[in-house]
Amino acid sequence: MTADSMPAANDPRRLLSELRALAHRVRLEQRMTWVALLVLAAVTFAAIPVDWFAMQVRCHPDGSCEFARQGMLYYWPPATLLAYGAIAFFYLRAARARGLGTRVLPYAITGAVTTVVFPAAWLAVHLYFQSHPYPDGPLPYWYFVLDRLVMPWGMIGVTLLLLAWLERSLALLLFTSGYLVLVLLVLPMSDGFGAPHFGIRAGMAVPQVIAGVVLLLGAAGFRAVQRRHR
């Protein structure tokens, strides 16, 4: 880039292209996607023992069992708040070290807001079924998808979508789409894998392990790409 003003009619195109390149370079410098994924993987893994040990399981003589995942309700709201706070802190610190500001604050705020969605949805469903009979027939599929969406792993996907938009990152958008398909449509995040292969606790833990591993692999992948670019 030189200090000249525009000398020719075809220059506006070149100038705009240069400006786009500059903006893109800034965005690349600001990206710390791997840190966000690593922190989210860490809170996902840390949730597993909490869920395991705090789960209340009551089995009846006919072989059916009831379970309550109270630990999740107490673990996730503070854990996600801490996680998004930590992500914002690392983003700001890294950007500052490079001589830049960053716009991760909307991401952190959205993360904090979505944190409230999980306990609010849990409470709403709990109150609803206290005064309404549980349906006899199988629940519709959309109910399970909605249930998984408002759970912490679904909310992580939603906030990652926002991060992809903030960073204008197609790679993160594709990764997050795959992650959301996994936690909303493939893995039984809310009711766990069932018998005969898994007990109730293990059946709940396995989908969480898979979600955590996916986030961790994503972190490693984005880290490798970032190192190659710099």
């Binding site: 880039m1 200090a3 000249d4 003003s5 400006l19 500059l22 830049l100 500001g101 960053t102």
Partner: peptide
């Protein structure tokens, strides 16, 4: 505004929200 370097400064600052002098100097090669 209509000057390459100044447009570059505004673009980088807009994207970064806040930018350090040294970063601008390096990116704009000035």
């Amino acid at each position: 505004v209509h000057q390459r370097v100044r447009l570059g400064i505004l673009t980088i600052t807009h994207e970064a929200r806040r930018v350090e002098f040294g970063y601008l100097r390096t990116q704009l090669e000035l």
